[in-house]
Amino acid sequence: MSSPESSASGYTKRDWGSHPPLIHPDYKSTVLRGPTKPLIPLQPGLTEMTGPVYGHEALAPLDADLTRNGVRNGEPVGERIIITGRVLDELGRGVPNTLIEIWQANASGRYVHAADQHAAALDPNFFGGGRCVTDLDGRYKFYTIKPGAYPWPNHFNAWRPNHIHLSLFGTSFLSRLVTQLYFPGDPLLDLDPIFLGTPEAARDRLVAKFSIDATEEGFALGYAFDIVLRGPLSTPMEG
């Protein structure tokens, strides 16, 4: 059995075989924004082993249902989907009561964000932001609309594949993760410098799987997406 590489304090390290490099020239913005000097190793202490805790009290009732939390006068346009799965640590244990924040474009590939000037329709009934807290098994579930692809200025005829942004905390500031979920079979994946910036062996971990079990009869297609965070190698002491 192989265990995740541990630091002396019993917290797994960032696995650089899984994460994209800090400068990836095909993704042009990295060239001036990624640091050029090596990261300096830091032995985690209490500062790193702690982090903000946001539980169910941080949520509003419709936060996990993006098909309803932006409604003004009707149903949002597009294909209703369900995104569900578990947040796990590297030993496969569920991470309970941890906050997941998501944001995404609408079905036509347009974000609510004021800086998005893509000439595609905004949807008055879709906001595109939501939150969820995992249950005791680390399970989560969002209802949303399948996001559309959209062009971006990285290179000629550049299009982002359909994706949903996710932000997670996990058990400490070390398990913090911001990532993107992609959809199976998307032909834009093989052309996307952000997705391709990820080490090849790790890319399929970013692609959700269609799940007939998660699909709700007569309502919405289901996609399964588990998220693995860094974590303590043993159960932390309760204070």
Binding site: Y27, W103, H165, L177, Q180
Partner: peptide, 23 residues
């Protein structure tokens, strides 16, 4: 377990504001 490898990080992108810093 080899089955539980870290989910890769991806950029926060240019459009995080309404999701993460809405207020």
């Amino acid at each position: 377990m080899a089955d539980f490898k870290q989910t890769p990080s991806q950029t926060v992108g240019p459009y995080f504001a309404y999701g993460l810093t809405a207020k």
